[in-house]
Write a protein that binds this DNA or RNA. Structure first.
Lengths: 199, 199
DNA sequence: GCAAGAAGTGAACGGTGGTTCAATCCTTGG
DNA sequence: CCAAGGATTGAACCACCGTTCACTTCTTGC
């Protein structure tokens, strides 16, 4: 054996893999999941179709990773925004504004991540995404209850319902084009009240 | 021309059409949308594949009708349950209990109607379904506001958020198997608070 | 019973797009 | 520069399933 994989090669492989994921994300942000054929993703990454299969066993595996990465970015943004505030009310406001703001900024991507028909294996990843949001929110709710800012309640359930309300309120605007100006403040008030934030 | 369609024939055609829709609903309730090939639906209706296409131009058209019928049944059930109550609080309770109860009774069907990946034309029908729920709820919210049972708010937005919260809270249980016992009352409390029902 | 025409049939078609693989190109250590 | 083996390529493959259509069966009025 005269050939053994080298740091240099491994680095290039990693770079290819990352390029594939990034390309898939780009294509998805432009044409939605429906526009993501393996060929188009490979083309965007300047690689041959077959090369994609050196990095991912199936298309579903590739997109599971794409969804994971994109979702993580979103969850991180929301987490960071919430961390800048101290009261639960302000944190919830920050979550709503960040979530909705980012979604409306890249509507196609948001629609793909939230609601577009995708294949079941990828859909499973979506649940993870939503639960990640719910986890972040549940933490704040639990803290709010502990601090006495919120009445006693099941933080998990409340967080799940919050995520659902947020997502639902975004689906219309995302497919329709734009959100009315009252949507974000209205939603914020609604969610504050739902959690029992003192007025 | 010696053949002209007759009442008897037209009745049989109608019956076939209804049998196809019913068969599609059955298959969907058993195997989800994913298990609904045109062949399997035709088989269930004891008809040949080609016959389906005498009644519906495409599979998507068939399933749009299936979704419409199933959704209408659900919306009607919820509407009826709400109509039995007088206060907005009791109506919302009835909606949550009916919606969740029925969903948990036929989880596969509920999952298909709410969240399963389907093709875009059918997905569009889903929006109609959700908006129908929202419309019913919006009516009650508006009435509650008018009567002074609820604080002033945008009934449309509140209703949309309610539907989202309900659907989201059901998706987990539907894919996981069962809901915890506290889900329905917890959700009810959450939604009452969200609307501003006086405690 | 018969001709005309509609309804029903299901095997075959065809498009799509994920996946494979034989050929080619690169990389490595000697 | 060479041999060994990995990486890359992209055209071909193939499975699936919605859709079609030539054929058969049924219905109707005379």
């Amino acid at each position: 054996m005269v050939y053994r994989s080298t740091e240099r090669v491994r680095a290039r492989l990693d770079a290819s893999r990352r390029r594939i994921v990034a390309a898939a994300l780009d294509v998805m942000a432009e044409h939605g999941y429906a526009g993501c054929t393996v060929a188009s993703v490979a083309g965007r990454a300047a690689l041959a179709t077959g090369t994609v299969y050196r990095h991912f066993p199936t298309k579903a595996d590739l997109f599971a990773e794409v969804f994971r990465a994109a979702s993580q970015r979103e969850v991180d943004a929301v987490t960071r925004a919430a961390a800048l505030e101290t009261s639960v009310a302000d944190r919830v406001t920050a979550v709503v504004e960040t979530f909705c703001g980012r979604a409306l900024q890249s509507p196609r991507l948001a629609y793909a991540l939230l609601a577009e028909p995708v294949d079941p294996a990828v859909d499973a990843e979506r649940l993870v995404f939503r639960r990640a949001y719910a986890r972040v929110l549940a933490g704040h709710v639990a803290e709010g209850v502990a601090r006495g800012e919120l009445p006693p309640q099941d933080p998990e359930l409340a967080a799940t319902a919050l995520v659902g309300a947020l997502a639902e309120a975004m689906v219309g605007p995302l497919s329709a084009g734009v959100a009315g100006p009252g949507t974000i403040p209205g939603l914020t008030t609604f969610l504050h009240r739902a959690l029992g934030v003192a007025p």
